[in-house]
Amino acid sequence: MSVLQHLPLGRFIEAASRGSRQTKQTVQVSFIVMLLMAAMALFSANVNAEVPNAVPPEGTYSGIHVEQPIEFPHDTHADINEINCMYCHTYARRSKVAGIPPTSKCMGCHSVIATDKPRIQKLTEYWENKQPPLWNKVHDVPDFVHFTHEKHIKRFVIDNEDLEVENVSEVCAFCHGEVKKMTVADKVKPLTMGFCQRCHQANDGPSDCWHCHK
């Protein structure tokens, strides 16, 4: 496990495709950060907004509840404090995997905020031991599935001019449910091929097998 926690030493050369994606991304990132700041400033009470230009996938699921090392309260962050999903899950728009935010991101706020809470003290302990928590996987797709977050975010968020950016969580909710009403996330959508396929049909997504199977 230890190997996965640290970075390789040395310096970045180029991204996987060896293309020039860095510059473009930086622009995108700063643009989105600006949007996020604007969104956070503009208080909005619209919790159940529809996502324009999109048909949400149908299907529900009741997964097992997965315990986590720290009972992370999504509701406190996303609902009460209205932090945008993409503020913490920044990888979702930059990579195929959304990833868990790095511990440094948590500590960015929690070195000063709510430091008296036991959960935060536990987090601080991880941070000081230079050991990120080992989270338990909640949303998983089979190994033969190639799912990429970034293209879905592009389709439903970045390219979706009619979407209010504070409603990003409604897009995430397509597949993850109303996480902002949960503490730790539970799986409430089936994430089966039929579930994906219905959404692809309704939203003109690609239907070629090799788009999603690897």
């Binding site: 996965l4 926690q5 970075l7 970045f12 991204a15 990888y91 868990i100 790095p102 511990t103 928590p133």
Partner: peptide
């Protein structure tokens, strides 16, 4: 288990290969 990074460099993104 899913392990997050502790404090990654800006260019390190899970799911994206970096060449050294």
């Amino acid at each position: 288990k899913v392990v997050s990074y502790l404090m990654p460099e800006e260019y390190v993104i899970p799911g994206v290969g970096v060449w050294y």
